[in-house]
Design a protein around this nucleic acid. Sequence first.
RNA 1: GCCGAAGUAGCUCAGUGGUAGAGCAACGGUUUCGUAAACCGUGGGUCGCGGGUUCAAUCCCCGCCUUCGGCUCCA
Length: 627
Amino acid sequence: MEDGRAMPSAPPPAASDSSAPRMTDLERLRHSAAHVMATAIAKLWPEAQFAAGPPVAEGFYYDVELTHRVSPTDFERIEAEMKAIVKANQPFERKVVSRAEALALAEKGRLAALAERATPSRYKLDILASIPEGATITLYQNGDFLDLCAGPHVMRTGNVKAFKLTAVASAYYKGDEKNPQLQRIYGTAFPNKTEMEAHFTMLEEAKKRDHRRLGAEMGLFTMDPDYTGPGLPLWLPKGGAILEELEKLAKETEFAAGYVRVKTPHIAREKMFTTSGHLPYYAESMFPPMEIREAEDAAGVSGRYYLKAMNCPHHHRIFAAEPRSYRDLPLRLAEYGCCYRYEQSGELFGLMRVRAMNMNDAHIYCAPEQFAAEFNAVNAMYLKYFKIFGFTKYRMRFSTSAPEGMGKKYVDEPELWKQTEDMVRAVLQASGIDYVEVPNEAAFYGPKIDVQVWSAIGREFTLATNQVDFAVPKRFGLVYRDRDNTDKIPLCIHRAPLGTHERFIGFLIEHFAGNFPLWLAPDQVRVLPVTDAQIDSAKGIVAELRAAQVRAEWEFSNDKLQGRIQRAEAARVHTILVVGAREQEADAVALRIHGKGPQGVKPRAQAIADLLQAIRERRSDEGQFSA
RNA sequence: GCCGAAGUAGCUCAGUGGUAGAGCAACGGUUUCGUAAACCGUGGGUCGCGGGUUCAAUCCCCGCCUUCGGCUCCA
């Protein structure tokens, strides 16, 4: 066999790569596959200008500038060229060069190309310029294809055994829309065909969990772009049930934690958002204003109203509605507020990115000395929720400011920024929560913590957010009278542990693959009489369950019991209660749980008590009916 | 918003320059049934929208809308 035979346990060895970035074996393989693809493209279109071609989570891509529009119909040709290159088994040769040598090659169009060309390798020139002085500059060559590249690579093109081009998309050079648009050609590569096929099978499986698909299948929500508009979901009754359960959870949790509930309108005058400072910063993310002529007053105050994109300004006005004393603090105002954001059309994505959203919002106004305790309590609430839902893969992202953004991206209060960030960092460290700090990502009014989660199908989302605001209360002139009889400005914590209904439920659908635990399941119980002689018994059980607020229904149809069970299972009904002559006789029910099969017969009263208990505890499905 | 792709019945998808097809779902009937599909029948489509080419367009061409895959931002 060839050297460096690609095996999962014995991956291809790297070409010499002491100065190269660290890559896993799979990443290295994929990075080499990207070079093989670039070689093929350069062969087909010698004028191609390549930018960057890294490995990514699912495979690799290479950005290329090319007048020919690459479409999936070209993939076959490109793959055929790639196969030839793999078959040729060209070695990947690493060359350390001086900056001058690299520049000379780039000027002659020789980089990321098979030969010298009339036009310089312009993106490679730009990348070259960004390599710091003194760093090692390396080239990699396979066959005639010579590329500026930090590496590392596998030994030979023959190591790239299983690959496939998957998509083409556009991407701005370096992700900046002021830069030229490049064609990004995606592919994936694996050590062998079997693993690659497993990958595509897994993608097929993941598709079945997709919240858009399950949402339609299960009747949870619908999109009606022609009538309601893009990004404006309609919640169907079964989705509404989930939404109600989440609100109930939030309301109970917040009530216990000392929050008070408020309710605010969906719109506000322009003054609200110019005062908050959102308007100049945030205008393009808001729906255009409504002009109401009568509202324009003599003093020339604008008659414009905006749909709110956030709830905080309204809550600030509630704080301002009466004089506040230090005795009133912390004041925790909670609301399931509906906000509207004009997301760009290309950004809309099922329930995960919408234009109208119901936010599990609250604003905590507190004195600086109360901050640590409040902030800790908020974090504890996050963790409590994650435990209920069984989220294990999450990360807190602590976003802080950067000096260069002061007065532009961030309110110009460098001292306050530092104080607050130190305070948040201290709390995070003391609480032992796992977090990463990301500079220059803060909100304009203060540092924030985003909770990122990964769905079962591998999508990453910011699910919840927790922000500190030391600026906007001041802009609204919010004060409380302190012990020393002076007015002080409160700190404000914005928090939304359950994010928005839309994204949270979208995430839950994928997390549970539609198989919700009993307390969340839209169809909690379905009672199936074996024959029509048990219909009255079934109705009685349903009435008893519904009186106890359980979502229960009964079904009798022309289908045999087996068929009705099949349909209930397909509909992901959580608990099926079968009542036949035997059960009727014994005042019992035969229990079946979705995905778990029959669970035996139980006295009716016992079964109902168990169901109520599981719902009340919001029990996850493990051990639901373990007894 | 930009680049690319897609849009046929409620859902999943076939298909053709000449009257539009299947499975599931729905509806009607027969069946009274024991834990993942009993049987028979019926209805259902402006083939995303608008324009063009053509004797004829769901199919070919152009524009638009929407959705999807990305870029960027974010709950």
